[in-house]
Simulated assay, not measured.
Amino acid sequence: MIIGSVGTGCSSTGTVTRPPSPSLVADERALALPPPGGPAIIGVVERSRGNGLEQTISLATTARVSGQNHLKIEFYGADMSSGPSAAFRTIDEREILREAAAAIPSVRLSRRNAFLQNTYGPFAYAAGRSAFGDTCIYAWQQIRAGTTSQGIGRNFGMIQVRWRLCDAFAGEQQLLSAVYGYTITGTFDGPAWDPFGEPNRADSRLGKTGYPIYPADSAALGGLSMGYAGGIDPRRTAAMTSHPSRRSARPSQPAPKGPAQARGPSVPSPDQVARQAAADPSASAQPNETVKRPAVTVPSPETISTSRP
């Protein structure tokens, strides 16, 4: 026993290792990005697993409800590390609703039954409003090829996506625009684990007669903006909109009395010209020239009426 213990101790390297645990990574290493316009990324926590990788991407928020906005993405595939593997599971309706309630505990969410689909396929969500007036949604999506092709294990990878979004100024449709417009930047190493499946073929009607194609008559939902681009503060924008008097810092001018007068160059009347010349004779162009009042004839209303044919 003593000899065996000594042999075991001599065979170990004694290297200090770090067990797999969540770690902060740079924002540029996020496996998914929100759409242009927001919400902004404020931190990325990554966890390695035996059969994949998981990231929780924290997002900016203006809501007063407790909790942090985030985009969670999980990649399930082949063995990637020595850590514990995650269960390879599909979406369960009851479990998803429990996830939503845990992510936004103070808001009563209602499951939306409309069929929705973004670039990566179908997704679903639940929405509600907090006691403070914040709009909240919890969206989920599973990205996986519908059928396998060219051998066992083809398109066997899977991606799970979760959105938790609450905002004090954005509506439900604006929050949904983030789910429509986000981009997945991560991928699997090798085509056998591609979760997106084979690319779609072109529409058979393209290039044929009898099938006219017209421009879209309405903008896509993904064109909606959450208003975070360019450093705009949604709270300040809303306050300025609700109080138009605060838009300008210039003091208000007293309103002129009497009827409104058109703005433009001021033309002095003949009486004003004569009074100015009498007060300042040196203003004349010639020393011996006398100021003459121009003859101005203003017809009376009777003259105007009698002069018409």
Rank of each mutant, 00 (worst) to 15 (best):
residue 126 A to R: 02
residue 244 P to C: 13
residue 50 G to R: 03
residue 40 A to L: 13
residue 183 T to L: 05
residue 244 P to D: 07
residue 285 A to I: 12
residue 193 W to G: 04
residue 38 G to Q: 07
residue 199 P to C: 07
residue 39 P to T: 00
residue 39 P to H: 07
residue 262 A to K: 15
residue 255 A to W: 04
residue 204 S to D: 11
residue 22 P to T: 03
residue 281 P to C: 06
residue 134 D to T: 04
residue 189 D to V: 02
residue 248 S to M: 08
residue 18 R to S: 10
residue 294 P to T: 11
residue 213 I to P: 01
residue 74 E to S: 14
residue 173 Q to D: 13
residue 257 K to W: 02
residue 57 I to G: 06
residue 276 Q to C: 09
residue 155 N to W: 06
residue 273 V to I: 01
residue 42 I to N: 04
residue 277 A to W: 04
residue 92 D to S: 14
residue 243 H to V: 04
residue 275 R to F: 09
residue 35 P to Y: 01
residue 162 R to K: 10
residue 56 T to P: 05
residue 43 G to N: 13
residue 226 M to Y: 10
residue 263 R to C: 06
residue 226 M to N: 10
residue 83 G to I: 02
residue 282 S to D: 07
residue 24 L to E: 08
residue 13 T to S: 15
residue 115 F to H: 06
residue 62 T to S: 14
residue 51 N to K: 05
residue 139 A to H: 01
residue 265 P to L: 04
residue 261 Q to Y: 05
residue 291 V to Y: 13
residue 67 G to P: 01
residue 17 T to R: 12
residue 205 R to P: 04
residue 263 R to K: 07
residue 226 M to E: 01
residue 195 P to L: 06
residue 143 I to K: 09
residue 208 K to H: 10
residue 207 G to N: 00
residue 159 I to Q: 00
residue 253 Q to L: 01
residue 204 S to L: 12
residue 71 L to F: 08
residue 35 P to Q: 06
residue 147 T to H: 11
residue 104 I to L: 15
residue 262 A to R: 15
residue 77 G to R: 10
residue 45 V to K: 03
residue 218 S to D: 09
residue 184 I to H: 03
residue 5 S to A: 15
residue 12 S to C: 09
residue 35 P to N: 03
residue 304 I to R: 15
residue 67 G to Q: 09
residue 254 P to T: 05
residue 28 E to S: 14
residue 21 S to R: 12
residue 155 N to V: 05
residue 176 L to G: 06
residue 194 D to Y: 11
residue 9 G to F: 15
residue 111 R to K: 14
residue 239 A to S: 15
residue 21 S to T: 02
residue 127 A to F: 04
residue 164 R to C: 15
residue 210 G to I: 06
residue 141 Q to M: 10
residue 264 G to W: 03
residue 156 F to W: 02
residue 72 K to T: 03
residue 277 A to G: 00
residue 129 R to D: 02
residue 97 L to A: 11
residue 209 T to N: 11
residue 54 E to G: 01
residue 60 A to M: 05
residue 224 L to M: 15
residue 47 R to A: 12
residue 12 S to A: 10
residue 226 M to K: 12
residue 198 E to M: 09
residue 91 I to E: 08
residue 303 T to R: 12
